[in-house]
Simulated assay, not measured.
Amino acid sequence: MVLDLRRNLSNADRAIRTVTGLLLLYMVYVRLITGIWATTAAIVFALFLLIEAASAY
């Protein structure tokens, strides 16, 4: 099995991931997303998006 992990080719993709991650964190902060499982999932997903945007993957 060969995994082809390509880097993001544009800054637009990184910007979209950053904005989406920050929006999810904001929604948790203002309590638009409630419940322990939904909050945890949103925070984890947002952190993955922000890490991917920072590392350009």
Rank of each mutant, 00 (worst) to 15 (best):
V30D: 02
A42T: 01
A38N: 02
L47Q: 08
T39W: 03
L50Q: 13
I36Y: 01
A41G: 04
I43P: 15
L32Y: 12
A46N: 07
T39H: 03
Y26G: 07
Y29I: 11
L23G: 07
L49E: 03
V44H: 08
F45C: 07
L25W: 00
A42E: 04
T34L: 11
I51F: 15
L22M: 12
M27Q: 12
G35S: 00
M27K: 11
L50P: 15
G35M: 03
M27W: 13
T40A: 02
L32K: 11
A42N: 02
Y29C: 12
F48I: 06
L22P: 09
L23T: 10
W37F: 00
A42P: 05
I43A: 14
I36W: 07
A38D: 00
A42Q: 01
I43S: 13
M27Y: 12
A38Q: 04
G21L: 15
V28Q: 13
T39F: 03
L32I: 06
F48M: 09
Y26P: 06
A41K: 00
W37M: 04
F48A: 07
T39M: 07
F48K: 00
V30P: 05
L23A: 11
L25T: 02
A41E: 05
T34I: 09
A42M: 04
I43V: 14
L22Y: 06
A41D: 06
L24R: 15
Y26N: 08
L22H: 09
L22F: 06
I43G: 09
L32H: 11
F48T: 04
T39R: 07
V44S: 08
W37I: 01
F45N: 01
L47W: 13
V28D: 10
G35R: 03
F45W: 12
I43K: 12
G21W: 14
Y29R: 10
T39C: 01
L24V: 14
A42F: 01
I33T: 02
F48P: 07
L22N: 08
T40N: 08
Y29M: 09
V28T: 10
A46V: 05
M27F: 13
L23F: 10
T40E: 00
